[in-house]
Write a protein that binds this DNA or RNA. Structure first.
Lengths: 182, 182
DNA sequence: GAATACATGTAAAATGTTACATGATTTT
DNA sequence: AAAATCATGTAACATTTTACATGTATTC
């Protein structure tokens, strides 16, 4: 899957592995992230499969850059993935829910403290989406002039914002339930 | 992490690997799932670490069962994990958002078809949580008499229900946005 | 003087998925 | 007669994380 994140970005313009990591960190990281080392390895695999090519750009006083460019085969592969509809939902993993599921014998006060702390973390995330992520989307849109793209980028941002807001509401309900009935 | 899911269940009673898989499939699978083979391997590791013990129960006309029991060390490990608060959020992966992010050049009609199909899938999931999962929680509560546990199990169920409902709302907004502005 | 940014990579370990292998009993 | 259930496991592969390894230039 990281494969398609990388091809997706390379479909706009050539990038180095380092730049791809930075770009992902301020854009797709909210719903698709990767470590630097994994990006380098995946790019190597993509090149082995002729989906991208690379060339080294020498630099002075800095390490050389390896710049990757998508190939025609890469564009086809990306296109084919994009047009393939999702027909079944993938299961999620939520550590928080796993913990909560087994917490019936935990101390009530401790449990409440943990959940309140988490509530604040998620509340911060709501702000993060409303402010930082919002700004990034607008900057991208202004600098690239990609209107349609910006609308979809903002749709993914709204998903994040609404997910976090929903989580805060759910935590509030859950905290209230534990306060009352435990 | 699967480690703690298994210890969590074994903290109630002994289970075989097969039974753990079945139990997870109707309970935690919504937020934590695993393949049968991974469960067997993880149990083996837990036994090597003395967090569980196992003994073989011979059966006639059926394969023998290997029944796992949690040890005192296992209970301590679980307890220590349960009391450790989550201080930083883990990043999520959402294939749908990744696809959407790069879909600006896709055909409008095709994109709308894909999103509407997905909307229906998530709508079904809302029902799944409201009916099937709800019933499982109530059955567990009734048969085990674990009142506190059932309240927390239902809290995780509500998270799923609310997540799916939020996703349906977001898809409706996104579909409307694409219909109007693309 | 210390930290961050720039820039690349390898290696080991952990985690998770898919495929293979077996075989009786029960249900459809 | 075919499919599902019960029950265990191994092996290969893919994915992801963590740690290791290097070195200059710029910013605080």
């Amino acid at each position: 899957m990281l494969k398609y994140a990388l091809l997706g970005f390379l479909n706009y313009q050539p990038y180095t592995g380092y730049e791809l990591k930075q770009t992902m960190d301020v854009s797709t990281a909210n719903f698709w992230h990767a470590k630097q080392s994994q990006i380098y390895m995946t790019l190597k695999k993509l090149e082995a499969g002729n989906l991208v090519t690379s060339e080294i750009e020498p630099q002075e006083g800095r390490p050389n850059r390896r710049v990757y460019t998508i190939t025609q085969a890469g564009r086809s592969d990306l296109q084919s993935w994009l047009s393939k509809p999702i027909t079944q939902l993938e299961p999620h993993k939520e550590t928080l829910l796993l913990q909560l599921f087994f917490s019936a014998r935990q101390d009530k006060a401790t449990l409440l403290t943990q959940l309140r702390l988490l509530r604040d973390l998620h509340q911060q995330q709501v702000k993060h989406y409303k402010i930082e992520t919002k700004a990034v989307v607008q900057d991208f849109a202004a600098s690239t002039g990609l209107g349609k793209d910006a609308l979809l980028w903002d749709a993914t941002r709204r998903f994040g914002e609404q997910f976090e807001a929903m989580t805060v509401r759910w935590l509030d309900e859950t905290i209230a339930m534990i306060e009352e009935t435990f």
